[in-house]
């Protein structure tokens, strides 16, 4: 099917690659379908999560494990249940990125990762109860990866 995006114009998306977010995501509860647009440039860690319905709605995402060596999460039972997670290898995890005016101050939300069951094509933003993580962690700052809040 054809999907309109602001970044890439109209793109062809195999319907099998559409990820269904049953509850939408917080603040965008009506948006149930997204597609991952992965950057083919291996040197570039930034990818997109694009809404199927709304060309103007996309998020820049990263694989947090590539950037934060000590990131680890425990997926809550509720999420496992909803995403029908059976095997660890089916799970994809991304975190959303906020790009402020000063691009050096890019942050990512390690508290609310996007968890996807690639096998079932189900996704959900999981909100962790983990006091090691915040909604803002600097990606580029080496001395303190923890953001302003």
């Amino acid at each position: 099917m054809k999907v309109k995006t602001r970044e890439f114009g109209e793109i062809e998306v195999n319907e099998k690659n559409i990820i269904y977010f049953q509850e939408g995501i917080p603040a965008f509860e009506e948006e149930k379908q997204f597609v991952l647009i992965l950057n083919e440039d291996k040197e570039n860690p930034f990818h997109y999560l694009q809404s199927i319905k709304n060309p103007d709605l996309s998020f820049i995402i990263i694989n947090p494990f590539e950037i934060f060596d000590d990131y680890d999460i425990l997926i809550p039972e509720t999420a496992k249940e909803k995403l029908k997670i059976k095997r660890e290898e089916d799970v994809l995890i991304y975190t959303m990125v906020v790009v402020p005016e000063d691009i050096e101050k890019i942050t990512t939300n390690l508290l609310g990762p996007i968890v996807i069951n690639g096998e079932e094509r189900l996704g959900k933003q999981v909100i962790l109860e983990d006091d090691r993580y915040r909604t803002k962690h600097f990606i580029f700052s080496q001395d303190s990866q923890r953001g302003g809040e």
């Binding site: 820049i60 790009v99 939300n109 933003q125």
Partner: peptide
């Protein structure tokens, strides 16, 4: 808080 962060994260 997550809602606010998601709104800020719109590309």
């Amino acid at each position: 808080k997550i809602e606010e962060e998601n709104l800020a994260a719109v590309n």
